[in-house]
Every structure is written in C-alpha cells, then in structure tokens.
Design a protein around this nucleic acid. Structure first.
Lengths: 343, 343
DNA sequence: CTGTTAGCGCCTTCAA
DNA sequence: TTGAAGGCGCTAACAG
C-alpha cells in the first residue's frame, strides 16, 4: 500500500548532481547554476519527490509547525479562536497542528509532550489545566503562548480577557433596563472564568444597590442540559425574577428552552443574556443579547504574535475588550407585566 | 528560551552504558540486565529525558500518529466525528493530528502533503474536494480512509451515509403529517450531499403524488444567513407553504429566525425539519425535528477501523443509517389553520 | 557554484 | 546480554 517514497539521493542521481545541489535548488539556500537547477527541477517532477519533513526537521531544528492545544478542539467556544489561527497561518510557511487536552491534566500533559517531542516551533495553549509552575516549565522547553490565563512570569506571552468586566457589563445592561431580580446561572465551581463572571454579576448588582439573592444563583456546567433543568426548577419555584444572565451562550440556550416550554416569552416575560457570542448565537430566536469575546481576532492576533516571535521580532500582544452585544432577548421591565415576578 | 533537550547519548553516559542499551531498556526491545536497566531508568528520570519523536520515526518508519484532515476542523458538522476519533484514540499509542482543508483543493492538497511528509501512519479524510483519481493516488502513499465519499477502488476504506434516504425520510415525515406545500432550502450546487438531499426530497414528494414546485425550492450555502434571507423572501412571496425542509440544521435555524421575525409560529404555522442533528439542535426552541447523522459513532468506528488496519487486522467498516429524529418543530397540518398557506 | 562530509537522535543489525 | 557501527533523509558547514 505504501510506496517507498523517493529520497533526495534518487533525485540527485536522476539529475546527475550531488544531493547538496538538489537541496540547495529546492530550498533556494544558495545559488545554483541555471542548467543544474533545471535538471533538478525536472528530476523532482519526474520522480514526484516529496521531502521527508522529519528528516528535514531533525537537521535544521525547525519543524515549521506550531502546536495548538485546546482544552477541547471541537468546543464551539474555541472554534473561532482556532479559525483565526488557521487563517493567520494559512499562507505562511508554518502549519498549525491541533490537539485536545480534554480538560484533563494527564491528557494535556501527554499532548504537550508529544507536541514537544514532535518539535513544534511554538506551542499555543487555549486554556490549560496545568499549574502556573508547570506552564513555566513547559515554557523552558518551547516558546509558549497561552490564551485564557495570565501566567505569572509569562505575562508577555499570555492573553486573557477580563471576564469580570464582561459579566459586570451584562448585568448592568439588565439593571439599566429596570431588572433587579436577575438570575445567574454560573459555570462549574472549578473554573476561573465561571468564578470571575459570577463576581462581575455580583459586583454590578451591589454597585447598583441590589443585594445578590442567593436563591437566584444556580450552578450549571456550561452545557445546555443543566441550565435547562436549573431554569425549569427556578420557574417552578417561588422566587420571582425578570431576567436571566447565563454564564455562557450554551446555558442561555438551555434556559431559553425551559422558558419556552413553560410558556414564558423572551424578552416579553423574561430577559435573557448569554456570554461568549458563539457562532450561531446571532441566529437564535430571538437573537441573543450576549457578551462578545472577540475570539476570531484573538486567534489571528495570537498567530501573528507567534509568527513574529518565531522570526525574532518582539511584537506585544494586543489588548482585547469584551463587549455587550445587545440583540433581541433583553427588554425593559414592563411595570404592568413584570413577567414571572408577577405570578 | 528553548533548553537544548537531552539526548539518548547523555542518558547513556549518565547511566554508564551504551546508547543501544538505553534504547533497549526504554522500549523493552530486548532483555537488559536488571542492574543496568535500573541505572538507565534512574538516568532517564534524573535527566528528564524525552525521546525525540522525529528521530524515532525516521528510523522506525512509524510515527504512531494518524492524520485527520477535515474540510473544516471547526465546523459543527465534523465536531462529533472528530470527537469520536479523539475518544477512540485517547488511550491508544496513536495520536491524532488534525488539520483543515478549507473546502479548497489547493489547501487540501498542501495539508495532505504535509501530513504525509510528517509520516502519519494513516490518513483520514472527513470530506474531500479532490477527485477520485487523486484520492487513489494518495492512497498509494499512505493508508487512506475517507468519510463522506465513496471512492471507486477504495470502497473498503470509505464510509458514506445515504443522504438521499435521509432526505426522503424527512420529507415523508412531513407528508405523513399532511403537508404538501413543502419548501426545500438546498445546499450549494457544487456539493454532492446537497444534491442527494434535494433528490431525496423530490423523490419523496413524487412517490406521494406531489409534484415538486420549483417555486418552493431555494438555495442556501449551508449557513444560517442565506437561509434566513431565502425564508424571509419566501414568506413575503405569494406561494403558500406549510412546512420547510432545510438542507441542514444551520439553515433550519436561519429559517426559524425568519419565521419568528414574521410572527409565524413553529410548528403551529409552519413545520420545520433540519438535517444533521448537530450538537445543540436538541435545544433549539422548539427542539428541531431533524435527520440524525450518527457522527460520533462514525468517528469512533473510523478510528477503530484505522487502528485495526494499522495492526494488520482487516475489520470491515460498519454500516450506519440516517434516522429521522422527531422533536417539536413538526406538527400535523391543521385544516382550519393552514398557516402561511391561508393568508 | 558544487561536491564531500559531518552530523541531527534514534533504532537495529552484527559481532562479540 | 551488550557495544559498535551503520543507516533513516536531509541540511549545513567546509573545501574546492
């Protein structure tokens, strides 16, 4: 099945030159006489030569590839970051190599090790479950860049967004529209982002004279199902509310379905805000107000930054801001129809 | 930044043995005296040795990796296939390496070439824009497996689903519920899947005595936006309809938003069917009736098949069926309220 | 400009 | 059981 692939030696013989000449002609490393160059090219063509990348890397020390390790390569949250990276690298000499860490230390460690042992020229982490110290250790073996964490000692290579402010803005948006009884469906306890968003929510409430009501705080796992269940329970409960701030878009979708099933309209009865602005969120019915993480731009910037570091230029990583995108899922509280609060 | 990594030579020196002994002790390739083995292990540990995978592959010829090239690695359609592959490979000695072809010949060719030149032990294509002949050529260089295409000559390594039958079933589902004026939003002309689904739709209509109405056929690009626009135009047009069969879930979501904006209820006024059953589709409001592609299982099966071929065992690829998943977006046509048809 | 010659880090005979 | 030595395929000095 696998044809033994042709090597540079055979090309050299075919072209009647030495292997170094072939190498030079191929890579433009040095000038080669016109006729020999043509002979080499012809031989290359005739034999269908494809250089063995491994061998090349072994000698040159550069693999022309950048490893990208995401917590989960297929999560919609990382989708646009990955897309941004892909596009930024598309017409460069570097190839991205993607892999998942599956939110699991052991798998992440292993993935990092294989990536390093495959000699990627740089490593980009989209989220990480490793400790700061471990990451610093990794950074000694390979140029490391991380998104979603601010690793002390590696600040120049880290890009994190202010989740607190994003959540603060989202909550304030609801407060400005008259909401005071605002549910928050938070993400998993263990995750820093979930924690930051919760604090942003609480701070916004307090800054506006609202005491956070623990009965309006429920926990999900960043997926639709748990939010659906939590919201259903909330609706069936006794505590009135007029708005829901979900810890991410997927949970907002789950909440929205629960509302729908209970005959509650969005935004007429309950306003709903998500977080992330995933691809597709603009097309929910109604389109969801959410906090946009500029993930595509981040992916691009990250890749561009990696490239420039690889070329020896030290460009600083740009700053990115979270933005509340107001769409149709949030409305002013109608005094006459306070929705759930009035039942 | 990059510490020169320790090589097998240093380990050998440290352990006071030859490099061959280190190699053997590490890989269990041959018996090594107990004391030397321990010395090697200690040295390995002390130096934090990590074998250079490239060098290893160069000599052994096996990279212990399988390349996975998807048209688009971040498309939700491939998400579950990829997830299935990842999970199936997770605790094996093989590592998947993912990459995108971007629906573009040139990029796909290049990605395939780099994957081959990195000596992946097998190559899995999730969709492909290359010709059958080109794929056969690739198959001569590396064990090739493809999902979504039936390549003549490579049938044993191909896995494709019967899109025609899926679309047929979806359309019949609507017909059985009394619908006759059924819109179809087809995917791009160039794509075989879109073509097959269209034919399934038309066949189901004809088999049930309905002549396909060209005015009810519109074209999208498998994304939300175009379906949204097409549906809006349709609603504003003069041709009555009671149901929409979208070429995929994303277009169904677009259509659903258009209906929502026009005040049309799903399924009360218009029934809606999608295709794919993407992750998340079960949580749209209302949950979408759709045709399920068992993508996760396919990913797993594909990976398992690749593994067994790599081990020299010839297991046949299992067959998979498309299934109509009936959820809440489709209902019987109410004679009294034929929805749009009655305006 | 071009050919020869060392390696790159590892595995694997081949002798011992 | 172990070490020496020869590649794997390619790049990069080093002489011409």
């Amino acid at each position: 099945m696998r044809k033994r692939s042709v090597t540079i030696n055979e090309v050299a013989r075919e072209a009647g030159v030495s292997i170094s000449t072939v190498s030079r002609a191929m890579n433009g490393t040095a000038f080669v006489a016109e006729d020999k160059r043509r002979a080499v090219e012809a031989a290359l063509e005739r034999l269908g030569f494809q250089p063995n990348h491994l061998a090349r890397t072994l000698t040159s020390g550069r693999s022309m590839s950048v490893g990208v390790l995401a917590e989960d390569i297929v999560s919609p949250y990382y989708a646009d970051v990955i897309r941004g990276i892909e596009h930024a690298l598309l017409d460069t000499a570097y190839q991205p190599v993607f892999n998942s860490g599956h939110w699991t230390r052991a798998y992440e460690r292993r993935a990092i090790d294989t990536l390093i042992s495959r000699r990627v020229d740089a490593l980009v982490l989209l989220g990480s479950t490793l400790s700061d110290a471990e990451l610093r250790e990794v950074a000694e073996q390979v140029p490391l860049f991380v998104f979603g964490r601010l690793v002390p000692g590696l600040e120049d290579h880290c890009l994190a967004l202010d989740q607190f402010r994003g959540a603060y803005g989202a909550t304030r948006h609801l407060i400005e529209r008259g909401h005071r009884d605002i549910v928050h469906i938070r993400g998993p306890e263990a995750q820093q982002d979930a924690e930051d968003r919760l604090r942003g929510y609480q701070a916004a409430l307090r800054d506006n004279g609202v005491t956070p009501d623990p009965r309006l705080l429920v926990t999900g796992d960043f997926l639709e199902q748990t939010a659906y269940q939590a919201t259903t329970r909330l609706i069936e409960g006794l505590v009135p509310f007029t708005a829901i701030f979900a810890g991410n878009d997927q949970m907002a979708v789950g909440a929205r379905l629960a509302l729908y099933r209970k005959g509650l309209r969005v935004p007429d009865d309950v306003s709903l805000v998500g977080f992330d602005d995933l691809p597709g969120t603009a097309f929910t019915s109604p389109p969801l107000t959410t906090v946009q993480q500029p993930t595509y731009a981040i992916g691009q910037a990250l890749a561009a930054h990696v490239l420039s570091r690889l070329e020896g230029v030290a460009s600083p990583l740009p700053q990115f801001e979270l933005r509340v995108i107001v769409r149709d899922s949030t409305a002013r509280v109608l005094r006459g129809f306070p929705g759930v609060a009035a039942r």
